[in-house]
Simulated scan of single mutants.
Amino acid sequence: MLWSVVPEEFILENYDKQTYNWVEAEVNGVKMLVEPAEGQPGYGRIIRLLCPNPSNYLNPNYQPGQTICLHGGN
């Protein structure tokens, strides 16, 4: 739900035309959605976790926005 004085047409303009370079990756057994880092092959920025284990969401290494090595390290 969106409450705003700005007309909906302006807020959602080109919303359906946005593209993302996100990929699914599994790092240390944790499945996540990652945006590959520009200029840093093998690294990416975590967008969101896709795993069902609640303890992974409490791990600061897997917070959205963190840069992670896609080959198993942090």
Rank of each mutant, 00 (worst) to 15 (best):
K17N: 12
Q18K: 12
Q18N: 08
Q18Y: 10
Q18C: 08
T19W: 02
T19P: 00
Y20K: 11
N21A: 12
N21E: 11
N21G: 10
N21I: 07
W22M: 05
W22G: 00
V23N: 11
V23K: 14
V23C: 09
E24A: 08
A25V: 09
A25H: 07
E26I: 14
E26G: 05
E26S: 13
V27E: 02
V27G: 03
V27Y: 01
V27H: 02
V27Q: 00
V27A: 06
N28I: 09
N28H: 13
G29Q: 03
G29C: 05
V30Y: 01
V30I: 15
K31A: 07
K31F: 01
K31L: 14
K31G: 00
M32K: 01
M32A: 15
M32H: 00
M32G: 02
M32L: 15
M32I: 02
M32W: 00
L33P: 00
L33W: 04
L33C: 06
L33H: 00
V34G: 00
V34L: 02
V34D: 00
E35Y: 05
A37K: 03
A37C: 12
A37H: 02
A37V: 08
A37L: 10
E38D: 14
E38V: 12
E38N: 10
E38G: 09
E38M: 09
E38P: 00
E38R: 13
G39K: 12
G39P: 04
Q40G: 06
Q40R: 13
Q40W: 11
Q40F: 12
Q40D: 13
Q40M: 13
Q40H: 13
P41Q: 06
Y43E: 15
Y43P: 03
Y43D: 07
Y43S: 10
Y43L: 13
Y43C: 12
G44H: 03
G44C: 07
R45P: 02
R45N: 09
R45E: 08
I46G: 00
I46F: 05
I46D: 02
I46P: 02
I47A: 10
I47C: 07
I47V: 15
I47E: 08
R48F: 07
L49Y: 04
L49R: 05
L50G: 06
C51R: 03
C51A: 11
C51I: 10
C51H: 14
C51G: 08
C51W: 03
C51N: 14
